[in-house]
């Protein structure tokens, strides 16, 4: 194992971690504010990827296709919130899990009906198609670096929104007590739509950016959602900082694990351990800190 390979994997792990972060903050935001467990969150990532694939066939300028894909996701998420999610906010978590799991199946089938079973492929924009020299011998794809950068910017923007704006204050206040926020004159219904759209857009941003890296196909968001749920549990529900730290930890653990464990234990057992490592970490964290690394509730 060379230093260069380790460096390359570290960058891959970072990039994967940031995609997970985009997913996980949406999960934690929707749970923190609306008390919603949304198993259809992976669908928003998938829709982002499909929308960029579809938009790229019509629009040649990548930035325009990028914006169009996010706007289409925003429209889809508003529809989803108004038609499906809203009644779920006041229901139990089991109802939410069942209903949103149903939504994810429906969306997975819908994309097959629209775009077919064949995976779609998206080309990265030409101006991001190069590589960057990390060392004299190792170069790294510029596009992957851009993903990490854009995801970090999105995280920063979200933090600024939550910490510095009045909308952010209302979202945080709503996470504590939506009834009181409403009784003080805020249209909480609209606030919740806003939060749902923000959380969907973050996932879709991940999907849009993943489009050129992995096959765009039905169900592509679901494995990422499962990891994102693990991230939320590890980081602590409702914590932005927790989501970031846990995402990066999971991204690096998963990426390095896939390299190291098979090397040490042989392919079969090594891969099993690699697959399980994230959940072993999750179990350890829960055992020591049941509310996660940065969770609010002393449990």
């Amino acid at each position: 194992m060379t230093g260069g390979l380790v460096l390359e994997q570290a960058f891959n792990g970072l990039q994967f971690g940031m995609i997970l972060f985009l997913m996980a903050v949406g999960v934690t935001l929707a749970f923190g504010v609306m008390n919603l467990i949304n198993l259809a969150h992976g669908s928003m990532l998938m829709l982002g990827a499909y929308f960029i694939a579809a938009a790229a066939t019509k629009i040649t300028a990548y930035p325009l296709a990028f914006v169009a894909a996010l706007m289409l996701t925003a429209v889809a998420s508003v529809l989803l919130e108004v038609l499906v999610m809203r009644p779920l906010y006041r229901m139990g978590h089991l109802d939410q899990v069942l209903a949103t799991f149903g939504v994810s199946i429906a969306v997975n089938e819908a994309v097959i009906m629209i775009w077919g079973r064949e995976a779609m492929f998206v080309a990265p924009p030409e101006w991001l198609d190069g590589t960057v020299a990390l060392t004299d011998t190792i170069s790294y794809p510029l596009y992957r670096l851009a993903i990490t950068g854009v995801a970090a910017l999105a995280g920063l923007a979200l933090w600024l929104l939550l910490a510095r704006t009045r909308l952010g204050m209302r979202i945080r206040a709503g996470a504590e007590n939506g009834d009181i926020v409403g009784a003080l004159g805020v249209n909480v219904r609209l606030l919740f739509i806003g939060v749902f759209v923000i959380s969907s857009l973050l996932a879709a941003l991940g999907g849009v950016m993943l489009g050129p890296l992995i096959a765009v196909q039905s169900g592509m968001g679901d494995p990422l959602l499962i990891l994102a749920l693990a991230v939320v549990v590890i980081g602590g529900v409702g914590s932005l900082k927790g989501a970031l730290v846990a995402s990066l930890a999971v991204g690096l653990l998963d990426t390095f694990g896939r390299m190291i464990w098979p090397h040490l234990m042989g392919n079969i057992i090594g891969n099993i351990v690699a697959n399980a490592s994230v959940y072993i970490l999750m179990a350890l964290v829960i055992a020591v800190r049941p509310s996660g690394l940065f969770g609010n509730h002393a449990a």
């Binding site: 204050m169 945080r172 206040a173 007590n177 009181i180 004159g185």
Partner: peptide
Amino acid sequence: YRVARAGLGLVPEGRHVFRSLDVEENLVAT
């Protein structure tokens, strides 16, 4: 929320200040 906007200012039982917001944010948010 529309009753509140019509001019009813509520100080609820138990006060329910937003614990994770600072004083100024509590005042500004709504």
